[in-house]
Design a protein around this nucleic acid. Structure first.
Lengths: 334, 334
DNA sequence: TTGTAAGCGTTATCAG
DNA sequence: CTGATAACGCTTACAA
């Protein structure tokens, strides 16, 4: 198989009878080339199968066009939906996404960020995990913009996009009470992400304000299986809850399935359930889950927009978005 | 904010009191550097925060380390699971994934492949859509390796990984008959992907061999909603099917939900259902769907392995993998 | 083992 | 508007 393969701007220039620079200008938006030169260059390029080498271009411009997406558990409904949205917007604004799949181990995100630096990514968007403070500084020093989504970090520099997780609890608590529920529970995972904890705290506080106590249980990761386990724990108690707020839709689906199929508890008849994220499955008729919608499009839009714009420099780099309550059938009397 | 930011090998060399090349060699696996030089370089690099510039390295080596993943509908359970697997393996073998999200329009994949060429990706893996013949040739001429997953294309050059979709039908048909079903149906989407059509043909043929006819209906895309619509069409007929093979798990979930919640048909009591893909939701107790498992790990492994190995050149570049039947509760008498 | 120097494919600068 | 020339940060003969 042939080895020396890629055709360079020089070859195009030779064939078109112009200089390298003319070729370069032809492929640089907004550069001044005469219509004729331009046409001849394009012809030659087409004939030769020339494609700009973005590696070399990035080297010169000190701007690769690459944006790193750092994420664990990509196959999860919420994560993959966010990923879709972000990549789409990124492409529309002329960037290209580099995907780094982290595991849930400690140095994982830091490792990913180092990768981003080596490829001279213009920016990194962190969808899961938390980078170490030092590596964040390293990225910023290297001129890399950082976006943290739902990470709720305090340090300045990166753009932080978060939801009003704490306020969600209040709305659910009210709905549960209105539905006549008396024994409230919160099903959480053990991972203890700031946003998950905020949902828990908000719910507990709101319930307390209504004069009710919440039994909290935490287990495993935020997936379907953990929801089942949590249901097993909570539904075998002597004082069984008649309302559960699950920190995540996946937890809620697992919880609901266990309640119905293992304990023959009717939802919402004997048990009201609410989730968080509004994943696609929440709308499926088997679940019909009342939940809070992650404003995925808004999140992605704000992130990408911030990347494309000249930085506002001293403006507060923290955005708080609203998670809308989506009423469905898993709470009585919606 | 500071502008000239990235630290170069030269600066490291200066600080360590060695030459540029020494630095380069230190970061090139398997190059000969004395332990002492190596140590001094590493110290200087650490102190300065040096990171190899992969853009420049790729330019020299003519090998970027980038592998392009071309995929539409990333947020779909099957796609995102495959994506997770591929990115993971890619990372383990020292490559990095560039994600391009295509829509279902015609030139979309071609556009993505051009992007891949511009970034001098070492390879592209196509998970959805079909590239034009000419662009495939262009990629190959440019030394870019190509992997087509479940695309069932005939042209030589790319590695083609496919399943035995056609054989699946036979196993389902037998199971349906054994369950006592008499009125068979196949629920497909309109997209007409080779693999989807192969499932349909295989099922129809197998049923014919058993002396039964299959009513086929096609609608929309391969998602949950389309499954509901198909159910509406097929379950309102005078001669209602008592067994349905859905081309996709998502279709099956939608079909099952419509059957149960709109038509109060019990599954598997009055209606047996089978799907294809074995997405996570198929195992959820609300569905408990009998289905065929995409051998996701094997697919990813074969793809990545082929990319990393020196090409076998003349060997047949087509792999056919087996989709295992996963027995669950949506067919009677498993 | 080490340093020197050439070159990878671009773009930016600056004359013309 | 165009063309020469100098970077960009790296790797890799080749020579020491």
């Amino acid at each position: 198989m042939s080895e020396k393969v890629f055709v360079s701007a020089q070859e195009v220039a030779d064939r078109a009878g112009v200089s390298r620079s003319a070729v370069s200008r032809t492929f640089t938006p907004g550069a001044s080339v005469s219509a004729q030169t331009r046409r001849r260059v394009l012809e030659a390029a087409e004939a030769l199968g020339y494609h700009v080498n973005e590696l070399a271009r990035g080297l010169m411009r000190n701007e690769s066009g690459i944006v790193c997406l750092i994420v664990s558990d990509v196959a999860t409904p919420y994560r993959s939906a966010l990923l879709r949205e972000v990549t789409l917007l990124l492409q529309n604004s002329g960037k290209v996404a580099m995907l780094i799949n982290t595991d849930r181990s400690d140095g994982s995100v830091d490792h990913a960020l180092r990768q981003a630096i080596r490829y001279r990514a213009d920016a990194s968007i962190i969808l899961s995990g938390m980078p170490d403070k030092s590596i964040v500084q390293l990225c910023l020093r290297n001129g890399q913009r950082l976006v943290l989504i739902n990470r709720d970090d305090e340090q300045p520099g990166p753009l932080r996009i978060n939801l009003d997780d704490d306020e969600a609890g209040g709305r659910v608590a009210t709905a549960f009470v209105r539905a006549g529920c008396r024994t409230l529970a919160f099903a959480n995972s053990e991972v203890g992400t700031p946003s998950l904890m905020a949902r828990e705290r908000g719910f507990v506080a709101a319930a307390a304000a209504l004069g009710m106590e919440v039994s909290v249980e935490r287990h495993g990761w935020t997936g379907y299986e953990a929801g089942k386990v949590l249901a097993q724990r909570m539904l075998t108690r002597t004082e069984r809850p008649d309302a559960v707020f699950c920190a995540t839709d996946l937890l809620a689906c697992g919880f609901m399935d266990a309640a119905r199929h293992q304990f023959s508890i009717s939802v919402p008849g004997q048990l009201c359930i609410a989730g968080f994220d509004d994943i696609e499955q929440a709308a499926w008729s088997s679940y019909d889950l009342t939940t809070f919608a992650q404003p995925i499009s808004a999140i992605a839009a704000r992130a990408v927009e911030w990347l494309s714009h000249p930085q506002p420099e001293n403006s507060e780099q923290s955005i708080r978005l609203h998670a809308e309550l989506v009423w469905r059938g898993s709470i009585r009397g919606g």
